[in-house]
Design a protein around this nucleic acid. Structure first.
Lengths: 261, 261
DNA sequence: CCGAAAGGTTCAAATAACAAACCGTCGGTT
DNA sequence: AACCGACGGTTTGTTATTTGAACCTTTCGG
């Protein structure tokens, strides 16, 4: 792991529930040396990616991130473009829908929306990176993303998120193969207990998935009826998102989706 | 300059007018070695801070930035908090108002708003970092920010943005001293030609400015009448922004502002 | 088919990471 | 008041990584 990756990985420890992190906590979370972590934190702070609370000495995300995000959204307004599509699908299905983009060997939430028509709902943290082997989105990404993604992932140890997470190499290969055939991924409680989800890939201008669109619902609500609705709606939504992002769905996948419908 | 700083500095070359940057262009902009730049770009890409256009091979800002920005805004919703105050002041004065936060030895725009009631208006790029010595915001920051900011800046060569930019050490010291006495900074065309601006500091919980609020107008519109309006309105706005950000205005500055009113 | 320009890759020499020990401060305890 | 442990931060000598000049590869216009 290079210096830059180590430093940037520190930023990934922030989430909705952890807004401020101290030096020792960073050391525990990252498993890196204290001196190294401190130098990285100092350098990130000097560049505005972090700022330090003068009272607690804790670090939090800095203003540089907002500035860059404004640039990114101005130049490539992905969030704004996909938002209406996500909201439409969430409304139709009455369940949580999210679009995520690949970020190295994880998926990074871009936008999510929950119609909030049910009492129970799926908690979704836009700060959290999604693992590839534990989520429906991840399987869709492995099946249709860059070819070296699956081999590379199989070389690492697959960490279980729940008791249902696929951690076996062979099973994962089979699951990905299944998704390649179906054009849609289904995972039952692989990432969060009592949550099941479907996902389909979305594409850029190469025939290689850049992200996914997914529907997640509490497992108890995931009836055959809802599954059928999702299976018929998701490919269309994935196509729309792909088009909004300026990409094209590869012909073979388009055929799979057409035959399924 | 450390590895991390070099890598993160690459991100600062993006702006509204430069959305995609190639390897050679990065090398020219940053002055660093091509191999180094390439490794940095690869590592930033692997972490989702950049993504590569497969067609042009150019790099653009990646999805990780959006994800982190969402976290930052959720945890510390500075943008959302100051927006109404900025818009209010912009409406009252009929000119561009912006709030910026310090990011190392520059200022980083947090939010800006222009009432758009005039035909000509000041162009403001939220992607661009503001230099400390050339802008009213910068002088306000130097006058009321961390004590080592001015000495450190004076050790570097002051780059002129226009023919009016202060580049002389002594003149800059005097200008900052003036701002310390007035509690408000005025700069005439120091950063952009035909644009004049006022700025006052905003504070965090330490008696040390964390950012500024500024009004910019075309020089031709900057009449004595407008100047008087700005001088009376800006300290109030700075106080309000400071309070929104959970900070306090130091007592001595509060006295200066009260006496001026 | 050439040459130029761009992206990308190699291998001695500069630089940063690592581990462990150390300093200063804070809050609570005896 | 002396003691303790936890935390942020710094230092030092050794080890590993990064750097940068040169080299290779691909693309594209003439």
């Amino acid at each position: 792991m290079g210096t830059i990756t180590k430093a940037l990985s520190l930023l990934n420890h922030f989430s909705a529930s952890r807004s401020e992190i101290g030096l020792t906590e960073f050391r525990n979370l990252s498993g890196q040396d204290k001196a190294t972590v401190h130098r990285h934190l100092s350098e990130l702070t000097a560049n505005g990616f972090l700022e330090q609370n003068p009272g607690t000495k804790g670090y939090r995300l800095g203003p540089a991130i907002l500035r860059l995000a404004a640039v990114r959204e101005r130049l490539f307004p992905a969030r704004r473009l996909v938002a209406p599509l996500v909201e439409k699908l969430a409304g139709e299905l009455g369940e949580l829908v999210h679009v995520s983009l690949r970020e190295g060997d994880h998926l990074s939430p871009l936008y999510h929306f929950d119609a909030l028509i049910h009492g129970t709902r799926v908690y979704f943290d836009e700060a959290e990176l999604l693992p590839l082997h534990a989520t429906a989105s991840g399987l869709a990404m492995l099946a249709f993303g860059p070819v070296d993604l699956l081999p590379k992932l199989l070389k690492t140890k697959l960490k279980p998120s729940t008791g249902y997470t696929i951690t076996d190499t062979e099973l994962l290969k089979q699951a990905v193969e299944q998704v390649r055939n179906d054009g849609i991924a289904f995972v039952d409680q692989g990432f969060e207990e009592h949550v099941s989800s479907f996902a389909s890939p979305v594409f850029g201008d190469l025939p290689e998935a850049v992200g996914t669109i997914a529907v997640a619902a509490p497992t108890v609500r995931m009836t055959e009826e809802l599954k059928a609705k999702i299976r018929s709606a998701l490919p269309l939504a994935a196509t729309e998102v792909t088009e909004k992002l300026g990409g094209v769905v590869p012909v073979d996948l388009r055929r799979i989706w057409r035959n399924a419908a």
